[in-house]
Computed example of a mutant assay.
Amino acid sequence: MENMKKTYYVTVATGEISQLSTASPWDFKIEATDDEITRLREKFDNVYSADWKGFFRAHTPYVQYHYDRENDTIDQTNEQIYQMIYELGDEEAREHIRAQGLISKINEQD
């Protein structure tokens, strides 16, 4: 039963994952197992944590964005999030990710 896929609605900006399409606005519709949702939730949590570290680091103004490890972590994790959404998402989600160029390895899958 745990490997059974369910429909979820994902909002990337807030890191929200819901089974209700009417609970709040959403960006992507995906089909995922409980384990896949747990992995996606962990990625959103990693972005949240790195974002707070970046907030505190921002008070050190001499470190530029491209030398900031927290920003690199957020960028890499966001790409992993979009990769998961691409793999689990419906055709509309995949088309949006393709059109926006949100992940770099997309051509290897097509």
Rank of each mutant, 00 (worst) to 15 (best):
N46L: 06
D75V: 01
Y48M: 09
I37Y: 08
R94Y: 04
D110E: 15
M4E: 12
E91P: 00
E16N: 08
T11Y: 04
S104K: 13
E70C: 02
G89C: 03
I85E: 08
I17Y: 13
Q80C: 09
I74S: 10
L88V: 05
Y65T: 04
F56S: 02
H66L: 11
Q19V: 12
I106N: 03
Q19F: 03
K6C: 09
R57Q: 06
M84P: 03
Y8Q: 13
T60G: 01
T22Y: 13
K105T: 15
P25V: 08
G15M: 01
Y8N: 09
Y62G: 01
I17A: 09
D45H: 07
D68E: 05
V63K: 10
D35T: 05
W52Y: 12
E70G: 01
H96V: 07
W26C: 10
G54N: 14
K5R: 14
I103N: 07
E70V: 00
T14Q: 09
A23I: 07
Y48R: 14
V47H: 00
Y82F: 15
W52H: 01
S49I: 12
N107E: 15
S49P: 00
D51K: 07
K6T: 09
R41V: 05
E2P: 03
D75W: 06
S24I: 01
T14F: 01
T11G: 06
G15D: 04
E70A: 12
T7E: 15
N3I: 05
E2S: 14
P25Y: 07
Y48E: 02
R41H: 11
Y67N: 06
R98A: 11
L102Y: 10
M1H: 11
M84S: 09
D51G: 02
S21H: 03
D90L: 09
A93G: 09
Q64C: 05
G101Q: 03
L40P: 03
D68V: 09
I106E: 15
F44Y: 04
T38S: 11
R39K: 15
I37E: 11
P25G: 13
I85L: 15
E87M: 07
D90P: 10
D110V: 09
I106F: 08
R41E: 03
T11D: 12
F28Y: 15
V12Q: 04
W26P: 01
E16L: 14
D72P: 03
E95I: 10
V10R: 04
Q19Y: 00
G15L: 00
V63H: 00
Y9R: 05
L102K: 09
D90V: 03
W26A: 13
H96A: 12
D75N: 10
D51Y: 04
Y65N: 07
D34F: 11
T77I: 06
G54R: 12
R69F: 04
T60R: 13
K6S: 13
D75L: 12
E16A: 15
P61L: 10
T33A: 14
E31D: 13
T11Q: 15
Y67V: 03
N78A: 02
S21M: 13
V63D: 07
R41D: 06
N46F: 00
Q19T: 15
V12I: 12
E2D: 12
F28M: 08
E79W: 08
Y9T: 13
Y82E: 08
E42D: 09
I17L: 06
T38F: 14
